[in-house]
């Protein structure tokens, strides 16, 4: 049985005014008693007002900071308030909150420092376009080499983090794509990663931030950042649990 009062659910949102009224009630139903905070990444729509009207606290960036920037803000918010676990549920409805217990459980029970909601450790209905899938396989291979065990879904943002992880990385998170390089950095700092199977949904409303330009830049940046992270001396985190 999960003690949801020890859990912070961070919902990064960029122009998600249409999706927030769907995802917030879903989270409340799946994680009763959990504290929810929306990290508004300088949306141009009414995401901020919509979140407040739903009774959810909002941390609003005055300028756009990217996906990693929003997650980093969630880390600081959680560290300041001493939550045992923070779990990221994207505001675009792609992360199904029904799996919250599956993602949070291993971290809260101390079986892992980071639990990754993965689309590829069990058969799911999620279908990835071929080119993107090939890219994911490449990054999965690179990450697995450095982590020491298979990590199949390096791009999933549906992750739960322990307080120690958040303390360690609150100022060092990559600001644009916190994917393979971040997972490698976590492993090099001595944190335990665990993948748990989840279903993900396709975006139904709003626009994806993943533009053509970003999809071209993504493989270059992530490959380079992965190698750089692997070359840096590993700063081991002091684990108390």
């Amino acid at each position: 049985m999960i003690d949801w009062t020890r859990v912070l659910i961070t919902v990064p949102a960029y122009n998600e005014a249409e999706n927030l009224p769907v995802v917030i009630p879903e989270i409340r139903a799946a994680a009763p008693g959990a504290h929810i905070v929306v990290i508004d990444d300088c949306s141009r729509d009414t995401s901020r007002e919509v979140a407040r009207s739903l009774g959810v606290p909002v941390v609003s960036h005055p300028v756009n900071m990217g996906a990693g920037g929003a997650i980093g803000t969630g880390f600081q918010y959680a560290v300041e308030r001493g939550y045992a676990v923070a779990v990221n549920v994207d505001g675009d409805c792609q992360h199904d909150p029904r799996h919250l217990a599956d993602v949070v459980g291993p971290v809260l029970e101390g079986r892992a420092d980071v639990a990754i909601g993965s689309r590829y450790v069990a058969a799911t209905a999620y279908r990835t376009p071929l080119v993107r899938r090939l890219g994911m396989l490449l990054f999965s291979w690179v990450t697995s080499r450095f982590v020491g065990h298979p990590i199949k879904d390096t791009t999933s943002g549906y992750r739960a983090y322990s307080l120690e992880v958040m303390r360690h990385f609150q100022r060092e998170l990559p600001h644009d794509f916190p994917d393979a390089p971040f997972l490698i950095a976590l492993a090099r700092a001595g944190f335990r990663l665990l993948e748990v199977p989840v279903e993900m949904r396709a975006r139904e409303r709003g626009e994806s931030f993943f533009t053509f330009g970003k999809s071209m830049y993504y493989p270059y940046k992530n490959l380079l950042a992965s190698l750089i992270v692997a070359m840096r001396p590993g700063r081991r985190a002091r684990r108390t649990s």
């Binding site: 905070v37 606290p57 941390v59 609003s60 005055p62 920037g69 803000t73 600081q76 918010y77 300041e80």
Partner: peptide, 18 residues
């Protein structure tokens, strides 16, 4: 530095609102 400042400002505003 800009990112740090932005984050600090956003968190401070949220704290005040709370």
């Amino acid at each position: 530095e800009n990112r740090e400042l932005t984050r600090a400002l956003a968190l401070e505003r949220a704290r005040r609102e709370e």
